[in-house]
Each structure stands twice: as structure tokens, then as C-alpha cells.
């Protein structure tokens, strides 16, 4: 069997808010077509780390990064790299479902493409249907594509956001606690969707729900206070972790 390609890797990635260092030198490799989870107690820097992968972190005034993040071999933090282009290759789904207000469902899905300059109507139609199908939302919305994005239920809105993200075909998708604002049934449908997405994309998800990481992720990394304590295959992390801190966390005796 072919060895899976490494699509994204961090090397000593550090993240700062002004003087405060939130993430201390983390290096992880991410393979294509896999789901990778990051778990850890609140405030351990997992979201900050994730947001540094698509250079959203630096949009906060005073925030910056050190170290390397290599997307298909090229370091996205090099001086001449345009963050906007990077973000077209590394998509992100947020905790609170956030369809753009005042835009219809159809417009929401294609807005990424439109604002990149794609004008061909039939191409947009095609892309919209394709993305909505992949997000398991097409059947539910095909008759009401003109309704506002906010008219859907929470779980549907989140799937709309996922459709919007995958419409621009990023090889990597980041998810920051994508189901914490959803009820259990909506959560289950999103997790099912993730298992489908894994066939095509590299997904990196931050979650504070250990069971979710155990359910969906192939690999799990455990952070505490900005440091990587342990990472590996989920089957190993959750049955026989090598570090005591990891063990304490997953058995609930800490954090």
C-alpha cells in the first residue's frame, strides 16, 4: 500500500499575542486524506495553533507567529507569501455556524468563488450543487436555494458553512470545535460528514470533546499550556498513552 503523502507540516511553530507566548514550538506532520484531532484542556493553545495554520491568527492586532508551516513543501510564513492565497488552500470551519447574513443559501456557497473572480454562471451552479451534495445538504435545500442562509437549523447551517469551505477546493480543512454549538443529532450528522470528507481532504480538528476525537480522528495530538505532550494514532492514544500527563487527561483525573 502506498505511503500516504504528508500534505501539511509544522516545524517549531510558535504563536504570540504581543508579549505573551501562547504556543511553544510545535512540530507535527499531517497526511492527506486523514482526520487529525487536537485535544487538551481549555487555554492550552489549540485554537491559536489551528488559526496559525491558515494565518488567521495574525489578523488580531499584535499577534504574530514564528517557525514554519509547510504546505506541500512550501513554507507559508515566508516573506513574500500572500496570506489570502494561502487561505484559499487551507479552509476553516468555525465553532458557531456563520452563514453570511443577507446572502441566500446559493450565494453563501459560491461567495468564495465569486469574490475570487469566477463569473461563469453555469460553473458556479455546478460547484454549488457539487459542494452541497458533498456536505449532505443538497436534498434538503435544492428547492430553496434563494432563501437566506440564516433560515436553516443549526446543524444545516454548519453543513452550509462546510459546503462553502469545500467549494473553493482546499486540500486542507481546519475545524475549530465545529460541533460544540450543536445538539447531539446535528453533531452526529457533522461527524458522519467528516468521515466522508476524509476520503478527499486532510481535516484538522480542534475539539474539547475527547470522545469526539476518539470517534472520528485517525491521529490525535494532546496539548497542554501551548506544548505538545504526545501525538499518535488515536487507537494508541486512547488505549495506551505513553505520557503520564496524557493518561491523566484521558482518564479525567486532570484538566
Amino acid at each position: 500500500m502506498e505511503e500516504a503523502k504528508t500534505i501539511l507540516s509544522t516545524k517549531n511553530l510558535e504563536c504570540f499575542f504581543g508579549d505573551f507566548q501562547a504556543v511553544k514550538g510545535i512540530s507535527i506532520d499531517y497526511k492527506e486524506k486523514s482526520i487529525n484531532a487536537i485535544i487538551g484542556p481549555s487555554g492550552c493553545g489549540k485554537s491559536t495553533y489551528l488559526r496559525s495554520l491558515n494565518r488567521i491568527h495574525e489578523e488580531i492586532p499584535g499577534a504574530y507567529n514564528k517557525g514554519e508551516v509547510n504546505l506541500l513543501g512550501k513554507n507559508i510564513y515566508e516573506k513574500d507569501v500572500d496570506p489570502v492565497l494561502i487561505r484559499r488552500n487551507i479552509g476553516m470551519v468555525f465553532q458557531k455556524p456563520n452563514p453570511f447574513p443577507s446572502l441566500s443559501i446559493f450565494d453563501n456557497v459560491v461567495i468564495g468563488l465569486k469574490l475570487q473572480g469566477v463569473k461563469n454562471k453555469s460553473l458556479l451552479q455546478e460547484k454549488a450543487e457539487h459542494s452541497l451534495r458533498k456536505a449532505a445538504l443538497w436534498d434538503e435545500v435544492k428547492d430553496k436555494l434563494n432563501k437566506p442562509g440564516t433560515s436553516l437549523s443549526g446543524g444545516q447551517q454548519q453543513r452550509l458553512c462546510i459546503a462553502r469551505t469545500i467549494a473553493v477546493d482546499p486540500p486542507v480543512i481546519l475545524m475549530d470545535e465545529p460541533t460544540s454549538a450543536l445538539d447531539p443529532i446535528a453533531t452526529a450528522s457533522i461527524e458522519e460528514l467528516m468521515m466522508e470528507l476524509k476520503k478527499e481532504f486532510c481535516v484538522i480538528i480542534v475539539t474539547h470533546n475527547m470522545q469526539q476525537a476518539a470517534r472520528v480522528a485517525d491521529n490525535t495530538a494532546f496539548f497542554v499550556l501551548g506544548e505538545l505532550i504526545e501525538q499518535g494514532a488515536s487507537e494508541q492514544i486512547f488505549t495506551n498513552p505513553k505520557q503520564k500527563k496524557t493518561e491523566d487527561y484521558i482518564t479525567g483525573r486532570f484538566g
Binding site: 458557531k96 456563520n98 453570511f100 447574513p101 469574490l115 473553493v168
Partner: peptide, 28 residues
């Protein structure tokens, strides 16, 4: 009143900031 994560969602799609402001936040 527009929550920050709407802006971030726009940025995360690889849309330049001025377009996020004028074509997503303000129209909304």
C-alpha cells in the same frame, strides 16, 4: 454588532480584507 467570526469566515475563504468589509459585512 456583526460578530467577529463572520469576518473571520470571510478571511478564511481567502477573501481579501477590503472585500470582506465591503461585500460581506457592510451589505449584511
Amino acid at each position: 454588532l456583526v460578530p467577529d467570526h463572520i469576518r473571520e469566515a470571510g478571511l478564511a475563504l481567502g477573501i481579501p480584507r477590503w472585500k470582506v468589509i465591503f461585500m460581506i459585512v457592510v451589505p449584511g
